[in-house]
């Protein structure tokens, strides 16, 4: 058989992937042809090289990461459930914050512009401040008042 025909079989023959009949042809040819024998040996060397990648060990942290994937495999939707729960809690907190901290959002007067609302609120605030600041009761316990009261009582009791 010619070299060109046998060479198509050499790569497969190096891995034992040929039939008995094909192997007999290859064996007979490489016994006589040094060039094809060298090529066959080179294919065998390549197979040994590739097989050197067998039995590799995984780095420690990656091995642990791989083992930790078991949880995701057995509970594939657990991560999404946790994410959904966190998102729901955040949405609830934000809603409560908006409702409580922005009172104008509760009862917006429909007939007033925002500027009018601002002026009215400010006026009310100033009025209340003045009312609270007005002194309604005289501080009767001041020392000056006490002195006058004592003097008046003394005048009333002095018998001329």
């Amino acid at each position: 058989m010619r070299c060109e025909e046998v060479r198509d079989l050499l790569a497969l023959a190096s891995g034992g992937d040929v039939s008995d009949e094909e192997w007999r042809i290859v064996e007979r040819h490489i016994a006589e042809c040094p060039s094809c024998r060298r090529l066959y040996m080179a294919f065998c060397e390549d197979r040994a090289r590739v097989e050197s990648l067998r039995g590799l060990r995984l780095r420690g942290d990656l091995s642990a990461a791989l083992a930790a994937r078991r949880r995701h495999i057995l509970h594939p939707y657990l991560g999404w459930v946790v994410r959904f729960a966190v998102a729901a809690v955040v949405a609830l907190v934000v809603t409560l914050f908006v409702v409580k901290m922005i009172p104008s959002a509760q009862t917006p007067p429909s007939h007033q512009t925002p500027a009018e609302v601002f002026v009215n609120d400010t006026t009310d605030f100033v009025k209340k401040a003045f009312e609270n600041a007005t002194v309604k009761d005289t501080p009767r316990s001041t020392p000056k008042y006490e002195r006058c009261r004592i003097l008046e009582e003394a005048d009333a009791t002095v018998d001329f």
Binding site: A11, S14, G15, D17, A42, D46, R47
Partner: peptide, 12 residues
């Protein structure tokens, strides 16, 4: 078989 032949030849 064809792919294996091609793969080994290309590797070589």
């Amino acid at each position: 078989r064809w792919r294996l032949h091609r793969a080994r030849t290309m590797f070589r």
